[in-house]
Design a protein around this nucleic acid. Sequence first.
DNA 1: GGCATATAGTTGTTTATGCAACTAAACAAA
DNA 2: TTTGTTTAGTTGCATAAACAACTATATGCC
Lengths: 146, 146
Amino acid sequence: MPNNQFKKGELYSFITGKASTAIGRRLQKNFKQAGVEITIEQWSVLYHLWKVDGMSQQQLCDATFRDKPSITRLVDNLEKLKLVKRNASKEDRRKNLIVLTPEGKELEEHCMEIANNTLNEALQGVTNGQVEIAKEVLQMVYDNLK
Amino acid sequence: MPNNQFKKGELYSFITGKASTAIGRRLQKNFKQAGVEITIEQWSVLYHLWKVDGMSQQQLCDATFRDKPSITRLVDNLEKLKLVKRNASKEDRRKNLIVLTPEGKELEEHCMEIANNTLNEALQGVTNGQVEIAKEVLQMVYDNLK
DNA sequence: GGCATATAGTTGTTTATGCAACTAAACAAA
DNA sequence: TTTGTTTAGTTGCATAAACAACTATATGCC
């Protein structure tokens, strides 16, 4: 950006993330309507475990961009829901490996379908090219600041 | 979107808003370093009051995309900080008009400078064209779902 | 081996969010 | 005027976020 002045409208929306708030809220609503009783934050943890089961909490922090206390509490609640278990690591006694239960595994297909449909809803009328560019911008922002 | 399938990576980032989380976190850090003792959520309310002083709480809900209880509590805390006051509306006794105090007004310039610099930081290496397209996509997403 | 530093996870605290439920005021229809 | 419906704001509740501080474990250096 050669010129360092933004119109105020851009400033606000970029900072507050209204679009992702709207997606998150819609996804939560769609989960609820479909009888899926997890929060979107819990989903965001399960999402990574479905891809790689048995991650450490620190790995979940990195993957979900949250801090350690937040992950501790999210995992607490997922344990309560019997969707995950903490297994002490054999190689490093500080580490817990978070593993999916059978119920946790079972949720994947249904949740991912709902999430997929929600994103389709959100991106109605947006072209593939626009999505690609938006992705690039958001990735650059994230890389600039993480 | 003719084809309703996304790669999983896109799915996750769009839904969770990692980029705006990163911006928000950086802005909070920059406020703190500059000795500005407000949260970014409080800033988002002040932002609208700096543009239009004396808004009702419902108007702030619409402007900031939050629900009524959230605004009630944000305004509570801003009152505690003596940055705003609630004035009962003369035309409609249900309504509070939220007005800036002199201290609240005084914060504008410094806060907006910090916010501006933070967004510049975030958008390093992004072209004007890319920003424009990203904005359009995010606006469409928001309009599709709000 | 001992000590300094780094790391994983937990606890405390404060702020925030959004759904549900409620009260009071305003508006619309009969 | 009365009644039914809508609207503005508040309270309750559960979940979440992140900073600070802490404990226990692991790593690196002398």
